[in-house]
Amino acid sequence: MGIFEIRSDAGRDTRPASARHRQDAIAQRWSLRITFIPLIVLGFVAIALIVRAWPILQTYPLIALLFGTVWKPSAGQFGLWPFITGTLWVTSVGVILAVPPSILTAIYISEYAQTRTRLIIKPILDVLAAIPPVVYGVWGLLAVVPFVESVLVPGLSGALGFLPLFASNQPTGFSVLAGGIVLAVMITPLIIAVIYEILHTVPNDLRQASLAVGATRWETIWRVLLPYIMPGIIAAIVLGASRAFGETIAVLMVVGNVPKVPTSLFDTAYPLPALIANNYGEMMSIPLYDAALLMVALVLLVVVFIFNLIAMMILRRFVR
């Protein structure tokens, strides 16, 4: 504010200066506090989940819960291993399918595309990123599951079925692969957006320094840009993985939800978020059931929090 402002302010406020300073100090203190509200909320969530999951953590050792393979709540068996592996399978397949095309697309849009093309493609990607998960799930049901069932199972499993990864053990298309494909499509716009933003932070001087000695664009990308943004690419992948890890609705619509450890792309899976969504609120009379599900929520929270924290700390280095 300008010098005139201070004078006009002072003229209006007749209280002694000390009172105004005190007011400012109070505002200062409270402002600092209210910025912590989101963190406090997170703390509440974490504490509530810990408290409610506590009974099961006291009854069974954590190792037994995480690595137990039998899920029979009515018999008091809460082995989460089938769900953990289900989540890992689906997430890995999604990330592996999404990463190469995402990186290539982001580089193309940023480094090769004409300004006009970029101005069309970028908003389309951003808009598509806003499509709700359940819509991706519907697409999965209508397009991906039948495609897996009628094309990929006979094709891939027929040719490579001797490999455990491609073995076909059940007749439907509801599978790890279907979940992975749906997740891949969902996280692609996110990964593209992050890598594109990072490429934007690379100073143009760097590109020109390479082009000036007669490097081609691809050589410039390969030798200068990619090494430079590699941490950012890793962060983008981690963010994508964490999004895939916690995705609930779209995945549960296409993976079949059978609590069995998957061993092949064409097996069914039952990821952790789906376990909560399908069962929470029902069968609450079974002892410890509710605690087990909240422990799953806690696991999701902790894993995603750590993933995101790592990714965001890496990305911070590019912003400044």
């Binding site: 989101p38 997170l42 509440f44 969530v45 509530a48 989940l49 963010l239 964490s242 999004r243 890890f245 916690g246 995705e247 609930t248 978020p273 909560i276 969504a277 929470y280 599900l293 909240l294 929520a297 999701l300 929270l301 995603v304 929090f305 993933f307 995101n308 924290l309 965001m312």
Partner: peptide, 14 residues
Amino acid sequence: DVLWGIPSIVYGAF
């Protein structure tokens, strides 16, 4: 930024 990625199922369960 980290909080933005917390899955909504966690909030739902909470």
